[in-house]
Amino acid sequence: MARQVLLIEDEPNIIEAISFILSRDGWSVATHANGETAIEAVRRHAPDALILDVMLPGKSGYDILQDLRADPATQALPVLMLTARGQKKDRDMADKLGVTKFMTKPFSNAEVLAALRDMAPAAE
């Protein structure tokens, strides 16, 4: 069974691009565009990995990450954070909150795939 990744992102074209890349690589991709209801989406989908944007309507990616890390069920969930705000303090913030990987937009498709594979290796 294909492993599942949940993409939380509000920019339609970026959703389209990432979904295409990951699906082609064999992932099952679910998407969610709202920050406020993101936690429920994570619980509902129970993904193997999470791709999280920072600037989301309703609730920022940082807050979502903090909530995830506070919940034992999602404490160890691999999270790849993508942000268009590329300043150093953004990365520091994400590290502090317990992010697994952090990438700045724009990214190369290969990097995203490699990061995902690295974070959530397929069970042999």
């Binding site: 691009a17 990432i18 295409f20 268009a84 705000r85 498709n109």
Partner: peptide
Amino acid sequence: SHELRTPMTSIRAFSEI
């Protein structure tokens, strides 16, 4: 930064594809 990088992200991703 955000406003510039967001369209660029789409452009780069799709042009790679």
